[in-house]
Design a protein around this nucleic acid. Structure first.
Length: 828
DNA sequence: ACGAATGAAAA
DNA sequence: TTTTCATTCGT
């Protein structure tokens, strides 16, 4: 585990830097974009190991309280992040745009611009963000009932169980545990969960697999939660949780194996059994239990199934591609599977559109896997040995497909499908980033399926489908397992996992492989296990893909604005929470990854969806807005402040212009005088284009008057005012400013100040020039030497645009051909 | 770490 | 009224 330190790739996430300490919570796209670098840190791993050990100990003891807070020190840090407020949401949504527009601008500058935008943002638009923030917050609070904003010192606020609450609070948590919170046990349990997840999380690199694991956990937790009635289950689950990730994983696999394995019988029968079991019929024949995990599995199955809520069932019902098959023709599916079974060739798959779809995904996955695998492989050479061999990709794909199907059937029916599904999503999102394009057909289908399933709550219906899907899977399974074994080329996650997880699992895999090889078609338990393992892995991947697709579909289909739901579903939140919780624990570094993998599923989706649904305005829009509506600022003081704000936004623009101009000129010193056209074009073009493009949004945004006549001064505002004043004053080249420290009014009065300020900030050297330019505004005498008149003109134009009064002067400065945009603005 | 913004909540 | 902290990320 600790083998490689590398992880740190913090490069993985840029954000890491800033947040490092806190971690967690949701990181939407950014994380996604990153893709999972993989290995978590050694430290974490080590810690985890410790935790695991602890867990085990506890396990033995049977005590629940245990671990949870052992790490208190960190707990404070780990505490959930507070929800973002409207402005933060806005920033998050627009910062990238700002950065795009102003690549050079640092975040501070970007933040300023964002602040300006925010200030100018329409109340209505703003309200959207506010509402979103509120929703977010509500959800958050719901999830974390006792959450305190300011933990004050280290101590996390109290709340029922101080330690516990502090620790995790993640989104994931709240929902589930929260409900019942009262019992300390649960809390501890939840925490435990996280740890487990944590451990699981390390495997993050595993990708889909980790997700699967998480899902499994989630399912467990969900069961517990959902099934209030089954207290018994709780303990079990707790135990489970305590176990190391490996164990859990093994358990899961074992479970699947059990189902599949029983195998002396025909696979079909087995599958059928599984289905039944999943449905609640459950065959308690737990005997088969294998080495470690048996108990957990058994318990889970019965209770879970029975206790399952309709929704869960729905989710569980969701099988994916297979479902389609089932619906279409069970027969066909069988035949096909049969086909597959005989000839592992993919060609047979072709018959099914779905298959075709899967392939690409698989390929992608493979890529991913390869990467992760490499890491893993480095760590574990032995494993590789086990896996040697390779089959053609097509074969593999087919195998995977089958496996996937099996897994789905298994998982879907058996465990709460819900968890897996959601969890998968996160992964999907990752993939999505990487791969973006997913086969539309598949998406649609899967989606439809989902919907259908949703509509159909009845389990029975599911059964048939599940069976259908399962059956094919099973047969394939064997082959798949073998193929997998043989295949070195596809570094499946399983490889990774083993490496990560190690020991037992690995051994199992190897063994299973070996056996399979030796036995040939016959499957030993181990072989089955290995197959299952693989299956799970593959399944996870597939699932994630599917989820991704679904998600994409939803997004696209629903459209950004349309969220019928309006609010995040609690389920999603819960889900998220669970996922998050898992990740949260220690991984400060890894967190993001983990979260991403684990938690993000639901929460991310929901949130992301909503977040994305939020209107995003192009910079141009704001510019225009600013121009058009010069005074919107809500600053308390009113006039002065408003102006100031305007100016500030303005400043930013000016800065930009100047930068551009300067840079250009530097590059090309030639232009002595005005070559207005060029300069203008340069600057204008982008703006104009964007402006035109965004015209719509702009139009919408532009509001003549601002409602916020005089907003209440908020403390923050005050702060801002002060700061700005100070900074401005200080920085002002003119020197005039200083006064008052602050009199806000000063600024408004003179634009020059603003310009100066901005200049100074950006470029101390040039500040002088700039200042002059501004002050002179219309005149622009001295400046010419350096800057082309045009450039100056533009700047001036901008200024003019802002300040209505001077419009006349603008005219004066004819030279500056005002860019269309500006002109339009100028109208006012 | 720090900072730049806003805002909500706590001290 | 003042602090904390949420997000982002270059410095």
């Amino acid at each position: 585990m600790k083998g490689s330190t590398r992880n740190k790739d913090q490069s993985t996430e840029g954000e890491g830097a800033g947040k490092r300490p806190k971690r967690k919570c949701l990181q939407w796209h950014p994380l996604l974009a990153k893709k999972v670098p993989d290995f978590s840190e050694e430290e974490e791993e080590e810690e985890e190991d410790d935790d695991l050990d602890k867990v085990h100990l506890l396990d033995e003891d049977g005590l629940e309280q245990d671990v949870d807070e052992t790490e208190d020190g960190e707990s404070s840090e780990q505490r959930a992040r507070r929800p973002m407020n409207a402005f933060l949401l806005f920033c998050k949504r627009h910062r990238s745009l700002v950065r795009q527009e102003h690549p050079r601008l640092d975040n501070r500058g970007a933040t300023k611009i964002l602040a300006d935008w925010w200030a100018y943002l329409d109340p209505q638009e703003k309200q959207k963000y506010t509402d979103m923030a509120k929703e977010y917050k509500d959800a958050f609070m719901k999830a974390n009932p006792g959450y305190k904003w300011c933990p004050t010192t280290n101590k996390p606020v109290k709340t029922p169980s101080p330690t516990v609450t502090t620790r995790k609070k993640l989104w994931a948590f709240p929902a589930e545990p929260v409900n019942d919170l009262p019992s300390p046990k649960k809390v501890s349990r939840t925490e435990d969960m996280p740890q487990l997840n944590f451990s699981m999380a390390d495997p993050t690199q595993m990708g889909g697999l980790s997700m699967l694991l998480l899902a499994g956990e989630h399912a467990l937790t969900a069961q517990e939660v959902s099934s209030n009635t089954c207290q018994a289950s709780a303990p079990d689950s707790s135990q489970l949780r305590r176990k190391s990730a490996l164990l859990q994983f093994a358990e899961i696999s074992s479970v699947t194996l059990q189902q599949v394995k029983p195998c002396g019988k025909s696979t079909l029968l087995d599958l059928a059994e599984m289905c039944l079991a999943s449905e609640g019929v459950k065959v308690e024949g737990s005997e088969r239990v294998k080495e470690e995990e048996p108990k957990v599995v058994k318990r889970e199955d019965p209770q879970e199934e029975r206790t399952e809520d309709p929704r869960k069932t729905k989710k569980s019902s969701y099988l994916g591609p297979l479902d389609l098959c089932g619906k279409r023709d069970a027969k066909d599916c069988k035949e096909k599977k049969h086909h597959l079974g005989h000839s592992q060739q993919p060609s047979s798959l072709d018959g099914l559109p779905i298959l075709g779809v899967n392939k690409p995904e698989k390929l992608k996955k493979k890529k991913k896997k390869n990467k992760s695998e490499r890491h893993a492989s480095e760590k574990l050479s032995p494993k590789k040995m086990c896996k040697k061999r390779q089959s053609s990709e097509s074969d593999i794909e087919s195998v995977i497909y089958t496996i996937d199907a099996v897994a789905k059937g298994d998982w879907g029916s058996r465990h709460l499908s819900e968890s897996p599904r959601k969890k998968l999503r996160p992964a999907a999102s990752l993939k999505g980033d990487l791969l973006d394009s997913t086969p539309p057909k598949k998406k649609a289908k899967s989606k439809q399926k989902l919907k259908e399933k949703a509509s159909e709550t009845t389990k029975e219906e599911k059964l048939p489908e599940g069976i259908c899907s399962i059956v094919p899977g099973e047969e394939m399974l064997n082959e798949a397992a073998e193929a997998m074994k043989t295949e070195p080329s596809t570094p499946t996650e399983e490889e990774i996992l083993p490496s990560i997880l190690l020991g037992p699992v690995k051994a199992d895999d190897c063994d299973s492989h070996k056996k399979a090889e030796t036995c040939g078609s016959r499957k030993s338990e181990r072989s089955c296990k290995g197959a299952l393992y693989k299956t799970l892995v593959s399944e996870g991947m597939l699932t994630s893909l599917r989820a991704n697709v679904d998600r994409g579909k939803r997004n696209s289909g629903k459209g950004s604005s349309s969220d019928p739901e309006g609010c995040w579903s609690e389920d999603s939140w819960v889900f998220t929470q669970s996922g998050t919780s898992s990740g949260s624990k220690k991984l400060k570094k890894s967190k993001p990854k983990e979260e991403f993998l684990a938690g993000y599923g639901s929460l991310e989706e929901e949130f992301e969806k909503k977040f994305n649904s939020l209107p995003q305005y192009s910079p141009v829009t704001f510019d225009r807005k600013n121009a058009s509506t010069p005074r919107k600022r809500k600053l308390g003081t009113g006039v002065s402040e408003q102006q100031k704000t305007n100016q500030s936004s303005f400043q930013s623009q000016k800065k930009k212009l100047f930068h551009k101009i300067v840079s250009k000129y530097k590059h090309k010193k030639e232009k002595p005088n005005n070559v207005p056209d060029k300069a203008i074009q340069l600057e204008d073009k982008p703006t104009v284009d964007s402006a035109q493009k965004n015209a719509n949004s702009v139009a919408a945004l532009i509001i003549p008057e601002l409602a916020t006549v005089q907003g209440p001064l908020v403390g923050s505002q005050k702060r801002k005012a002060r700061k700005t004043k100070i900074t401005h004053l200080v920085r002002t080249a003119d020197g005039r400013v200083s006064p008052a420290g602050g009199i806000v009014e000063d600024k408004p009065r003179r634009m020059s100040c603003d310009g100066v300020v901005s200049c100074t900030k950006t470029e101390s050297c040039k500040s002088g020039l700039v200042g002059q330019a501004h002050s002179v505004a219309g005149d622009m005498p001295a400046v010419s030497a350096f800057f082309s008149l045009t450039a100056l003109a533009e700047v001036a134009a901008m200024e003019n645009a802002h300040r209505s009064p001077r419009a006349a002067r603008d005219g004066q400065q004819n030279e500056m051909p005002q860019p269309p945009v500006l002109i339009s603005c100028a109208d006012q």
